[in-house]
Design a protein around this nucleic acid. Structure first.
Lengths: 233, 233
DNA sequence: GAGTGGTCTAGACCACTCA
DNA sequence: GAGTGGTCTAGACCACTCC
């Protein structure tokens, strides 16, 4: 009969969004407590709690114990950015993907890398450098460090034909990640590999991932400035 | 006593992550049903459900009714990037925010802008250029076009003391948005404003927003290359 | 200390989807 | 049809934080 809408947390959430949009609950204002709302909507407190938690995750309200729940003054909106495999990214543009391994070796982690990964001094990591091409033109330069303790089997991989990312994605999922994006000036080597002049702007993405608290990999991905990272909301 | 860890959904989630990491639950493999897990962990099914839903949101597992829950084979992960007000971004770093209006005028939209916004030829838009500073140093250069048809009242704003973004956020929410990020070489004017040399790399964010299908604003935000956009997952 | 949100339990019913 | 996840209820206790 009803099917879609009983007193669901969704319906409650939608009504709350309406009240915020209509300023019945004005920006910065305190809204009623969970118990009162549960009574008003004729639902269990857990249901109201769920709706409110989702609104909080979306950034529309802020919640604090004892203080209560307030409508956010200037909501922090979020963009979602998909992190695809380079190969898929290139192929989805209708280009032909190819791959070149530049170097692969077990090395003592440089201090900067060691510190970012919070590893012990002297830890040895797999260091892989490679190039991803779209229609034979340089698309992305990848400089990656992999922690063998978190990615067992990495020492047996030669990465001759497929990049370390494809192997990691298939074999070592991550539970947490940190991303950073920035512009930088191309170094001499990067410039040569990407076919730009040294000092030219490049787009840099850095990714650091963990699995169950243990650092898995730190990677620096460098694109020519023509690259645009796009996201819709 | 126990304090941190009773049979919480967090502890259960952590144990599940461990099993995935240790390949006790291999990639692509089916994991036990909620009821079985609830029995094993000595928790209510709702608690196990919560842990699993969080893992699913994080992309580590995929769930389907009747089919059960599987460890994801090649997760397409997403990064969520917060889009804060520049002022908050600066203040949250403990710096002092200040603002300078560079220009403000109603203008016929240039062809590039007109096309991106899908507006009729000859449409007049509010064009605002301004600078956001952190501790008196240039932090972000903003070049914005606002569609008065979607943001009524914009012609009455002088934007002398606060930027157009704060006004828009408070008065004209958006329902859809498109973001793009890229590296670029600083133009002469941008370079002078940001205190870098022309041709130096800059980080560019472009944002285009709509409300109910009508274009609201197109903005280009330019940062010196030292800027990093960070996101945790 | 007291009030609010955070989370767990135990049980129930529903909705989807595979066989 | 049957098995699985999705969600709600009613009640309880806990944890944080403001007064």
């Amino acid at each position: 009969m009803s099917g879609t809408a009983r007193r669901s947390s969704r319906a409650i959430k939608a009504e709350m969004v309406r009240r915020i949009a209509a300023r019945e609950w004005p920006p910065g204002g305190l809204i009623p407590g969970e118990e009162a709302l549960a009574r008003e909507f004729g639902a269990a407190r857990a249901t109201v709690n769920r709706a409110l938690q989702e609104l909080a995750r979306a950034g529309l309200v802020e919640r604090r114990r004892k203080a209560g729940t307030r409508v956010t003054l200037s909501p922090v909106r979020e963009a979602r950015i998909a992190i695809p495999l380079v190969r898929h990214e290139i192929e989805s543009r209708g280009a032909v993907y190819s791959y070149t391994l530049l170097s692969r070796a077990m090395e003592a982690a440089p201090e900067v890398v060691r510190a970012r990964l919070a590893l012990k001094r002297g830890t040895r990591l797999m260091h892989v450098r490679c190039l991803h091409l779209a229609d034979r033109a340089a698309y992305q330069y990848e400089d990656r460090w992999i922690n063998p303790a978190a990615a067992p089997g990495v020492e047996a991989q030669d990465f001759e034909r497929t990049g370390p990312n494809e192997w990691l994605v298939a074999n070592h999922p991550f539970s947490e990640a940190e991303f950073a994006f920035a512009a930088a000036a191309a170094g001499d080597e990067e410039a040569a590999l990407l076919g730009v002049r040294p000092g030219d702007p490049v787009f840099v993405a850095e990714r650091l991932t963990w699995l169950a608290g243990e650092p898995v990999t730190l990677v620096r991905l460098v694109h020519p400035a023509s690259h645009r990272m796009v996201s819709r909301l």
